[in-house]
Amino acid sequence: MNAIASSAPSVNATNGPLEFLSFTLGKEEYGISIQKVQELRGYDTVTRIANTPEFVKGVVNLRGIIVPIVDMRIKFSLGSPTYDQFTVVVILNVAGRVVGMVVDSVSDVITLTPEEIRPAPDMNSAMASDYLVGLGTIGERMLILIDIDKLMSSAEMGLADPSLA
């Protein structure tokens, strides 16, 4: 059984609606559980750390906590990132660790009922098979729902302890 098949029912097993923070990367719209979001910040200069993967932009000091900053456009190979007044850093609390995620822009908080969340198709991509919860559908709008705990706790990211996810 693939990861989508095993993770999608757990979302649909929830009785009530779920809230997702929607954000854009390129032309696509994504969503993560609002419960993981600590705060939203504008993009600011980061301190680069040597020998880190390209998608780890560096770290920032957030009120005394050193926070790694991950550029999701680079992580998902969605072209060269541009940083402007719309660029947002979503500060997450994932697996007991504070992590920043750079996205092109943040849209809004969307409430989805279990019926509005469909299993993601199996497309043999690393993201689809391991980190997708499903697809949220609101009319003609589609939201790619990411399991941010699994993504940030994955061995390739190395940012959070997977045993705490």
Score class of each variant (00 low, 15 high):
27 K>M: 09
89 V>D: 13
23 F>Y: 08
3 A>L: 12
119 P>T: 02
136 G>C: 00
157 M>Y: 13
155 A>H: 13
43 Y>P: 00
97 R>F: 12
4 I>H: 06
135 L>T: 02
105 S>C: 13
69 I>M: 01
78 L>I: 06
23 F>V: 00
163 S>R: 07
76 F>Q: 05
65 I>D: 14
102 V>Q: 03
71 D>C: 10
90 V>K: 08
159 L>P: 10
46 V>L: 00
70 V>A: 04
69 I>K: 02
28 E>N: 15
145 L>R: 06
122 D>A: 11
139 G>Y: 04
121 P>C: 04
20 F>W: 08
64 G>P: 09
111 T>W: 03
35 Q>S: 11
57 K>Q: 15
75 K>M: 14
19 E>F: 07
130 D>V: 07
130 D>L: 09
120 A>Y: 05
148 I>T: 03
33 S>W: 06
51 N>L: 11
41 R>I: 04
132 L>R: 01
4 I>E: 03
146 I>A: 05
120 A>G: 05
72 M>T: 03
32 I>G: 01
109 V>N: 06
79 G>R: 05
30 Y>G: 07
45 T>L: 15
33 S>V: 01
6 S>P: 13
69 I>Y: 00
33 S>M: 05
86 F>V: 11
151 L>A: 06
43 Y>R: 02
70 V>H: 01
164 L>V: 08
41 R>N: 10
151 L>M: 12
140 E>N: 13
88 V>N: 15
153 S>M: 04
93 N>Y: 08
141 R>P: 06
7 S>T: 09
58 G>E: 00
